[in-house]
Design a protein around this nucleic acid. Sequence first.
RNA 1: GGGCGCGUCGCAUAGCGGCAAUUGCAUUUGGCUGUAAACCAAACGUCCUAACGGACUACGCAGGUUCGAGUCCUGCCGCGCCCA
Length: 341
Amino acid sequence: MQKRQKLIIIVGPTASGKSELAVKLAKKLNGEIISADSRQVYRGLDIGSGKVSGTWRAGHPERSEGSHAYRRGEILQQKLQNDKNKVFIYKSVPHYCIDFVSPKKTFTVAEFKKCAEAAISEIAGRGKIPILAGGTGFWVDAVAYDLNIPEVPPNPKLRRELEKKNAAALLKVLQKLDPRRAKTIEQKNPRRLIRAIEIAKALGRVPKLARRSPYHILWIGLSQSYETRSHKIETRVEKMVRQGLILEAKKLLRQGVGRKRIKEFGFEYRLTLEFVDGKPSKKELKERLLQETLAYARRQMTWWKRNADIHWISSPLHLNGTNIRRTLASFLASKSHMSKS
RNA sequence: GGGCGCGUCGCAUAGCGGCAAUUGCAUUUGGCUGUAAACCAAACGUCCUAACGGACUACGCAGGUUCGAGUCCUGCCGCGCCCA
């Protein structure tokens, strides 16, 4: 029987300190980090997505000599586009799958999955331990459970066509194409229905979702009390606005990213665009940002709550707690391979 | 002082005399098969019941008309606009 690759996964709601914990663990355990955040993959979404501020480095992640550091956004980045070994460095720890896609493109879960898997075997191949950290539940699970996401790329033309129909009509279409999936799907969710039809048209039917676990995983979750969370989020919102969330949105506009596209990058950007258009005041903007962020954190927790494998800790600082320390130690001592199998 | 209009469940809105009362936001809970910070669902006066359901309290306040009033009438209070 083949030994499974070890993987540490860090999850938690926004502003819980995932990045900090990931870096801490990476340094302690000689690991490298894979980001699992659906917006931090894009270049230019820095403040609004809460991205850490790192630099790009060409060459092998471990060979510091002969490699060059580039500040994000510099022209030299173009040179890096073709460099397979480029790596995003934050606090001297390499980060993968972050800050490398044009915001004009759409980067899907399936692409992320490939990116993360490549990074994991890359890291493991060098004898280091991969740490997957991020707030996008679906993306994390896609990797953790090797979800067999159907190989059907988005079909914009079909989607545009289907978007004209309502949920009931879409359901009828799906029922004809794939009655089995029609029974299990959320029957009032147009987005899901459209996607299911898209898959069914391409493959005949929607394949059953298989959940495997190709990795030996240690799940660590960060959670805090409601008070701590709202306090932290309030601080984060203030900081975002101060650091130039509004300028960032304007910059995206200037770069020719469409308004509709920008709104797809989440409520921060949607609300900021509304502010730019002069609807709410700055005070209202902050209030709404706070409100939306709290609601978002709640939804994230809904996703993680049902995952019984997660070891919850309340702060990155509590890594020395007896329980988590023991768990970590036995995980590291367990007999899985560190190198790729 | 005169004329008009408005006061509804946190906020905003709807409500031909049959109403625990519409819708949006917020809130709470939950879901999630290539948009996932997206998208979708449920609950949201109080109490009782496993449930169908029932009881009570509610549309600024006080009266009145009516079998029945958020809805009509009178007065009061508060708010807004216009004329003085």
